[in-house]
Measured scan of single mutants.
Amino acid sequence: SPEVQIAILTEQINNLNEHLRVHKKDHHSRRGLLKMVGKRRRLLAYLRNKDVARYREIVEKLG
Rank of each mutant, 00 (worst) to 15 (best):
S1E: 07
S1T: 09
S1R: 07
P2G: 03
P2D: 06
P2S: 05
P2Y: 14
P2C: 15
E3F: 04
E3L: 05
E3S: 04
E3N: 03
V4C: 14
V4S: 10
V4Y: 15
V4Q: 12
V4D: 12
V4T: 09
V4H: 14
V4I: 10
Q5W: 12
Q5F: 08
Q5D: 07
Q5M: 12
I6W: 03
I6V: 04
I6N: 00
I6F: 02
I6A: 01
I6T: 01
I6K: 01
A7R: 11
A7M: 15
A7E: 10
I8H: 10
I8E: 08
I8C: 11
I8R: 11
L9I: 06
L9S: 01
L9H: 00
L9V: 03
T10D: 02
T10W: 04
T10H: 02
T10E: 04
T10K: 01
E11L: 08
E11Q: 10
E11F: 06
Q12M: 15
Q12I: 13
Q12T: 06
Q12S: 06
Q12L: 15
Q12P: 01
Q12D: 03
Q12F: 09
Q12A: 11
I13R: 00
I13E: 00
N14M: 10
N14Q: 09
N14W: 05
N14V: 06
N15Y: 12
N15D: 09
N15E: 12
N15L: 13
N15R: 12
N15C: 14
L16I: 08
L16M: 07
L16H: 03
L16P: 01
N17R: 15
N17L: 15
N17A: 14
N17G: 06
E18Q: 10
E18V: 07
E18S: 08
E18Y: 09
E18D: 09
H19D: 03
H19Y: 14
H19V: 04
H19F: 10
H19I: 06
H19K: 05
H19S: 04
L20A: 02
L20T: 03
L20N: 02
L20R: 02
R21K: 12
R21G: 04
R21L: 06
R21N: 06
R21A: 07
V22R: 10
V22D: 09
V22N: 10
V22I: 13
V22C: 14
H23M: 04
H23F: 04
H23D: 05
H23A: 05
K24W: 09
K24D: 11
K25C: 14
K25Y: 10
D26R: 04
D26P: 05
D26C: 08
H27Q: 11
H27V: 11
H27D: 08
H27S: 09
H27F: 12
H28I: 11
H28P: 06
H28A: 14
H28K: 14
H28T: 10
H28E: 12
H28Y: 07
S29M: 08
S29L: 13
S29C: 13
S29I: 14
S29N: 06
S29F: 06
S29Q: 05
S29A: 14
R30T: 06
R30Q: 06
R30I: 13
R30G: 03
R31A: 11
R31I: 11
R31C: 12
R31G: 05
R31E: 09
R31F: 06
R31K: 12
G32L: 15
G32C: 15
G32K: 15
G32W: 13
G32Y: 14
G32N: 15
G32I: 15
L33C: 10
L33I: 06
L33N: 01
L33S: 01
L33D: 01
L33P: 00
L33H: 03
L33K: 03
L33A: 02
L34S: 07
L34V: 09
L34T: 06
L34E: 12
K35E: 15
K35T: 08
K35F: 07
M36I: 09
M36A: 11
M36G: 01
M36L: 15
V37M: 13
V37R: 06
V37E: 08
V37Q: 08
V37G: 01
G38D: 13
K39Q: 14
K39S: 05
K39M: 13
K39T: 07
K39N: 04
K39C: 08
K39W: 08
K39D: 10
R40V: 14
R40L: 14
R40Q: 08
R40G: 01
R40H: 03
R40M: 12
R41E: 08
R41Q: 08
R42N: 05
R42E: 12
R42T: 06
R42F: 07
L43K: 01
L43P: 00
L44Y: 01
L44R: 00
L44Q: 00
L44A: 01
L44W: 02
A45I: 10
A45F: 05
Y46W: 11
L47W: 03
L47V: 04
L47C: 02
L47A: 00
L47K: 00
R48T: 00
R48I: 04
R48W: 09
R48L: 07
R48K: 14
N49H: 13
N49V: 14
N49Q: 13
N49F: 11
N49R: 12
K50G: 04
K50H: 14
K50A: 12
D51S: 05
D51T: 01
D51N: 08
D51G: 02
V52A: 12
V52T: 09
V52W: 15
V52D: 08
V52H: 11
V52Y: 15
V52G: 10
A53K: 13
A53N: 14
A53V: 13
A53M: 10
A53G: 11
R54V: 06
R54Y: 04
R54D: 02
R54H: 05
R54G: 04
R54I: 07
Y55E: 02
Y55A: 03
Y55T: 02
R56N: 14
R56Q: 14
R56L: 15
R56M: 15
E57I: 05
E57P: 00
E57R: 04
E57F: 04
E57W: 05
E57S: 05
I58F: 04
I58M: 06
I58K: 00
V59H: 02
V59E: 02
V59I: 13
V59D: 01
V59N: 01
V59Q: 03
V59R: 03
V59L: 13
V59G: 01
E60W: 04
E60A: 13
E60M: 09
E60H: 08
E60G: 07
K61D: 04
K61R: 08
K61W: 15
K61F: 08
K61I: 09
K61L: 11
K61Q: 09
L62W: 05
L62I: 12
L62V: 04
L62D: 02
L62N: 02
L62K: 02
L62S: 02
G63L: 15
G63D: 07
G63K: 14
G63Q: 13
G63W: 14
